[in-house]
Amino acid sequence: MQLIITDAWLAKSRAIHLSGTKLILSTVLVSFVLMLIAAMLYHWVFLKGAREGWPIVGSLVKFVVKDEFEQRDRFLRENLDVLARKTGEMQAKLTQLESLGERVSGLAGINPAIIKKVPGQGGVFISGRSLSMEELRVTLAELDQLTDQRSDLLTVLESRLFDKKILSMMIPSQLPVAVGNLGSSFGWRIDPFTGSSALHTGLDFQAETGASILAAAAGVVVTQELHPAYGNMIEIDHGNDLVTRYAHSSKTLVKKGDMIKRGQKIAEVGSTGRSTGAHLHFEVLVQGIPQDPQKFLAAGKHLPLGQLTKVSGVNPSLQSAVADITSRWAPSQR
């Protein structure tokens, strides 16, 4: 490359020849000088002008700084809004989990206070670096996924426990009289009217006239009538071909089609029909076939075993027979 320099005063010209290496070095040198001059100008004009209060420079610096702060604030505000929404969603899900936990613990017979109790924590403190915004978002996403999994699991457990509780409420294991002594048991006996051997298809509970008769399990009243032999009689259908029968009552308090809760008072003890005195004749029928009610009453775990044995004369070993009987009328549970 050739440069020609002309001096107007001396009327002379001078030619300078630059090779490739010299040209590169010259370009680098000129660039460095320009950058140095620009840095000095920035320091002198902007920084010094801002410190000394030059109006134009100060306004320009304030505008640049303000724009930078606004961009930073906008970025932080957008990320905080996202984190706030995520936090709100997590709070809602945790409330749902707490509610599910209380219901599941109630169905499982566990004190809900144990679930709510905050576990103890401690240990040596080893400090670590602060989480970045991206790491915090990832952590929240993992917690969100874990919360969904726990919620699904608790929902399934609640459904299973609820089904199990409903099934237990449909099994006639509630004593049908609040106060009474067991008279005649299920099986063959001497008939009190004829004096001959006859099958007694239920249990006789001796009680005073007017004593409360309670539903042994939840169900629907399918029969409420005055029967020649059973007197004032009530039959409750518990589903799966399981029916309980309450006979000889002096007064009935329910009618056909009524929904009955477990332990609900449905009648009062009496001596109507083919009876020699005030008592409750209680039967359990599976597919229309009489069963020994003692085997079902033995499953009444809500009562102390001693009280159950005292009132109904139940042998605790009979509890194992309940599963064999219920498996025939609840095939869906097998």
Rank of each mutant, 00 (worst) to 15 (best):
K261W: 01
V138I: 14
K265L: 01
S99W: 06
G219I: 01
P55Y: 02
V104L: 11
K256C: 09
A330W: 03
S151H: 00
I16K: 06
K261S: 10
S59Y: 03
D163W: 01
Q333R: 02
W188S: 02
L76W: 11
Q121A: 05
A198M: 06
F46P: 07
V243S: 02
V104E: 05
G109V: 07
F75P: 00
S59H: 14
H43F: 11
E142V: 11
T326E: 13
E268F: 02
T147P: 02
A39R: 06
G231V: 02
N315Q: 10
K62H: 11
G49Q: 09
R160M: 04
L34H: 10
A323I: 11
N79K: 09
M170H: 05
A323C: 01
S197I: 09
V322A: 12
E78Y: 07
H279V: 03
S151D: 00
L157I: 14
F162D: 10
G109Y: 04
V269T: 08
Q2E: 15
L100H: 04
G288W: 00
D67G: 13
Q294E: 13
S26D: 06
L10Y: 07
G277M: 08
M40C: 08
S249M: 01
V33L: 11
S320F: 08
L97A: 09
K116D: 02
S59R: 15
Q174N: 08
S59M: 14
L157V: 06
T6L: 04
D324Y: 03
V104A: 14
A323T: 07
Y230Q: 01
Y246A: 01
K256H: 10
G270I: 02
D81M: 12
L253G: 00
R328W: 05
A323G: 07
K165N: 11
P228V: 01
V118C: 08
P172V: 02
Q291K: 13
Q333Y: 12
I234G: 03
G288A: 01
D144G: 08
T194K: 12
I236V: 07
G277E: 08
E70I: 07
S168H: 13
Q333L: 12
I126Q: 15
G187R: 08
E98D: 15
T194H: 08
Q307C: 04
S168L: 13
S26W: 09
S105Y: 09
L161T: 04
P293H: 11
H200I: 01
A278H: 07
G219F: 09
F296G: 07
R74H: 06
L143F: 10
M90S: 09
K265S: 01
K255Q: 12
V61P: 00
L29W: 12
H248F: 05
P331H: 06
S332I: 03
G53M: 09
V57I: 14
I234L: 09
L175T: 00
V220H: 05
E98Q: 15
M133K: 10
E283S: 03
